[in-house]
Every structure is written in structure tokens, then in C-alpha cells.
Simulated scan of single mutants.
Amino acid sequence: MLTDVLLYTLIGYLSGSVLYSLLYRKLFHTDDIRINSRDHNPGAANAFKNGGMACGLFTLAGDFLKAFLPVYLYIHLTAHSLWSIGAAFVIAAPVIGHIYPVFYDFKGGKGITATFGSLAALLPIWQPLALLAILFVFFSTVLRITPNYYRTLVTYAIFLPCIMTLQINIAVGTGAMLIAGVVLFRLLTSKETKDEFSMEPIWKR
């Protein structure tokens, strides 16, 4: 049991440490998408904005699958599945790898797409994935928070305690909370230049 947890946690972390926007740059000899961005984040948003549609799709798919596959394989190829509390570390490992990638001096992205990848692998346990998606949609449309830094910060800050209210597998809940905690730590310790916080309700537009 412990061996499987350690193995898939390591696989997940190493998989998460591959930054696909930077891999795209090496494969197709394009500019670094981080250069012209305020947050220097190698994630999907900057890949679309600064690298174009092909770079964005490559990054989005890569960042999603690098988290989805290790968690999915752990669940379906080991006998312990999600009954072991150690599964929480398997769930969180790809996101931690994306945020603190060993291949890039531990300087990675915010882990949003990777979070969705890890949580999607848990289906049919759908509650954490649905909760995170609803929060992002709510703060992007109904009560629109800008810039993206604060939208992500508020989303994960609410996501973290809400996880504890869901009646789900304890390993899944713990894994989701670990992800939220690491993302929040990454955001709160970020030195990126931040625009002024803005919140605009849909009924005032």
C-alpha cells in the first residue's frame, strides 16, 4: 500500500513538473510566453494570450492530462484505490509539481488547470470538481472579480473550507484541501505586480 502511494505520488509530482508551455517553446522554437506577462506564469492563460491558439491548446491539454493521468492510473491500477489516506498525496502531487517543478528550479505556475485535471480523475466522485468549477464561473460572471490573481485567490479561499462540508471520501477531501492550501500559499507568497482589486456584480453592469 505505502509503496503504491509513494510511487504514484512521485510519478504525479514529476508529471506535474513538466511545464507544457515551455516544452512547446522548445519544440517549436517560439518566444517564452512568460516574458510579456505581468505574473510571469507559464500556464494556459498566458499561453493563449502570448503564444497563440496552438500554444494555448497544447498547454491546456498538457497541464490537464499531466494531472489527470497519474491520479486516474492510481485509482484504477491499484487495489487500495481511494480507501487509503495516502491517496490524498497522489491527488495533490501533480498540482504541487506544477507549482514547484523540479525541472524548472521550483518556479512554476498557479496550478489551476492541473487542479481540474486531478479532480476530474476522481469521477464519479464529482463534488470537488463541480464546486471549483461553480466558484470560478460565479466569480467570473455573476460577481466578477478582477484581476485574475484575486479571482483565483478568492475562489480557492472559499473552496478550501467548503470541501469540509462535502460528504465525500476522506482521502478525496484531504487531497482537495491539500491542493487548495498549496495554491493559496503560492498566491500569497507571489511577488507578481498586482492590479487593484475590483468586484463588479452582474446587476450593476
Rank of each mutant, 00 (worst) to 15 (best):
A88H: 00
L188S: 11
T146G: 04
I85F: 11
I35Y: 12
Y150E: 04
N46A: 08
I202S: 11
S81P: 03
F89P: 00
G43P: 11
V182Y: 01
L6R: 11
T193R: 14
H76R: 14
Y8G: 01
I85R: 06
F103K: 12
V5G: 01
F185W: 15
V137E: 09
F159H: 01
Y13T: 04
Y156S: 00
L6T: 14
F68E: 01
F58W: 08
S21R: 08
L178F: 10
T115S: 14
I125D: 04
S198W: 11
A120S: 15
P42L: 05
F28N: 09
T155D: 00
V182L: 08
A121T: 07
F106P: 06
L19K: 04
S190Y: 12
K66M: 11
G108R: 02
I35K: 15
N148E: 10
W126H: 13
I158H: 02
I168C: 00
P101K: 05
L119N: 01
A93E: 04
F89N: 00
Q167L: 08
P128T: 06
F136M: 14
L129S: 05
I158N: 02
L132F: 03
K66P: 09
G43R: 07
C162N: 03
R186Q: 12
S15L: 10
A88M: 01
F28H: 11
L143T: 00
G109F: 04
G175D: 01
I91K: 00
T189P: 07
L77K: 14
D31H: 14
A61L: 15
L184F: 06
G109W: 02
I75F: 05
G111A: 07
V71M: 09
K26G: 10
L187S: 07
P201A: 12
L65S: 06
L7R: 03
G181D: 04
R205A: 02
R34D: 01
L57E: 08
H29C: 09
T193S: 15
F58E: 01
L57T: 12
R34G: 02
L153E: 05
K204F: 06
R38N: 09
I99R: 06
I85L: 15
Y104T: 02
Q127N: 09
T141S: 12
